[in-house]
Structures are given as C-alpha cells and as structure tokens.
C-alpha cells in the first residue's frame, strides 16, 4: 500500500494547482466521453455510470473508497439524492477540500482503508482509481499483489449489507513499452508522480474479487482516458507561466512529461481503463 507520504506526493502539490487543469469538481480520473466532447460533462457521465453500477438510490448508504477531492461524494448527494455518503482518503489536502465543500450528509475520513472501521454498514460502494495504490511495485514483482487486492475486496464485503453493489474503476496495465523513452517515461510516472503504486492488470481484478464479489459487467475505456489526459494537458499548458512562477519549473516540467506520457500510453495500449459493476456474493 502507498504510504501517506507517497499519496501526498501524488495529490498534495496544491489544491489550487490541480484546480487549474482538472474539471470544476476536481475529478482526477478518467471521464466518460459518451455523446460529449466536454470534460465537465464527461466526468459527470463517469460518476453517473459508476453510481448506476453500484445501484445507488437516495436511500442507499454509500461508501467511496479513495474519494479524492470529493467530486463523487458531491455528485451522490446533489444529483442522486443520497442522504448518507462517506469517503476515505489518505490525503489531508483532499480531506480539507471536502470539508470546505460543506456537503450535507457527507462524512470524510483521512485513513488507510485497512484501518477503516465504519460505524454502520453500507448498501453501495464506489471506488475510482484507488486500487492502484494497494500493491507496491515490489509487491507486484514478488507476486504478493493478488493477496493485497483480495484483502481490499474482502474489506469492502465486510463493510456492506447483503444485496450491495460495487461500482469500481481501475487503470489497467496492458502492455510493456518496447522502447527506451516510453519505458523511462512510464518508470518516471511510477517513481516520481505516483510513488508506491502501480496500475493493475485486468486478470488481477478478475482473480481477486473472488470469493466476495461477482463481476456483472466490465467496460474498457482506453480512448476515454487518452482524451481525458489530453484535455488535462491542454488546460495545464494554458497556465504554464503561472505554474512555473508559483510552484517552480520542476512541477510544470514533471506534469508536462507525465500527462504527455499518459496520452501516449493510452494511444499505444500500454495502459487502459476499466469500469466494473460488481455484486456482493451473499
């Protein structure tokens, strides 16, 4: 599992920095470009898809594992009429942002999911690109990752009521590059932008959900993530001068390299994105 320090390298550069180039609600994950070319709308469609996958109703008590800056929690209470939603994150900056949003019915906690103990069980779970932080690269290399992923699915099973559904989204590791520049760029993302984490292989998820969750639907969205990253990069470049001035050349250059490498990574099939609808095995 990524440590709190590693998570904060990824998400705590500054909320203001991320606000410059993410969508207005600060979704830092792939949007769903179905019938739209607009990032804001694509992010809403993504959240809608996942809440449908999790069978969320206004009466559902919903858990968001790895809730980021609260975009999904906000969507749940403002668009789905959810009265009780809880999020967990390891990032203190993200937690601060959620608190500032003052969302009714929303509770957010800064904690490692392994230590989390809910006061009441949930009817639905949503987790958007958090699983990438569960297994460290060295754990994957040593074959320890499936055990770690299965433990995560077990915890989600324990925290839910019978009949629960789970809307899950993960980045996929599809194909290792075959050239030096792309290998170094992917390595840079792993060590400098998201230290302590690694994207998953689809077969890892399929293997690890058992015996807790049944896979009811899987959709891959490789092109959608390419488009999302390209838009993030475009927006970030619009603020180059401000970013260099306020956070330094290294931040701009690193994020330029990282987002450019992501666009190429999705184009070249090095990476993809999957969304899943999982049903609790009761």
């Amino acid at each position: 599992m990524s440590t709190q320090e590693e998570v904060e390298v990824s998400y705590d550069v500054s909320n203001e920095f991320f606000r410059l180039w993410l969508d207005e609600k600060m979704n830092y994950t792939c949007g769903l470009y179905e019938g739209t070319d607009d990032l804001e709308e694509a992010q809403m469609k993504k959240l809608h898809w996942l809440s449908e996958a999790a069978h969320v109703t206004p009466d559902s008590r919903v858990l968001d594992i790895g809730c980021g800056w609260g975009a999904n929690l906000e969507f749940l209470v403002t668009h789905k009429g959810v009265k009780s939603a809880e999020g967990i994150t390891l990032s203190r900056s993200q937690h601060d942002e959620i608190m500032q949003r003052g969302l009714p019915g929303v509770q957010a906690n800064v904690c490692d999911y392994r230590d989390y103990e809910p006061t009441e069980k949930f009817d639905a779970v949503i987790s958007i690109c958090m699983m990438e932080h569960i297994a460290r690269p060295e754990e994957v290399r040593d074959g320890e990752h499936i055990k770690a992923y299965r433990h995560y699915f077990k915890k989600a099973w324990e925290w839910t009521n019978p009949g629960a559904w789970f809307g899950l989204q993960t980045i996929l590791r599809n194909r290792v590059p075959r050239n030096k520049k792309d290998l170094h760029d992917i390595g840079f993302i792993t060590t400098d932008i998201f230290p302590g984490g690694l994207s998953l292989r689809l077969e890892d998820v399929i293997q690890a959900v058992n015996p807790y969750w049944e896979v009811m639907e899987v959709q891959t969205r490789r092109e959608h993530y390419e488009k999302t990253c390209a838009e993030w990069l475009r927006r970030m470049k619009l603020h180059e001068e401000l970013i260099r001035d306020k956070w330094g050349d290294k931040v701009f250059d690193d994020y330029d390299r990282y987002l450019s490498a992501c666009v190429r990574g999705f184009q070249m099939h090095y990476q993809s994105l999957a969304q899943y609808a999982l049903r609790r095995i009761d």
Partner: peptide, 10 residues
Amino acid sequence: DSVASMEMVG
C-alpha cells in the same frame, strides 16, 4: 538491464 531487455524484445 530491464530497459535493454524490453528493447531487445521489441
């Protein structure tokens, strides 16, 4: 190394 190894595969 691992990078050269993948380049070789390519």
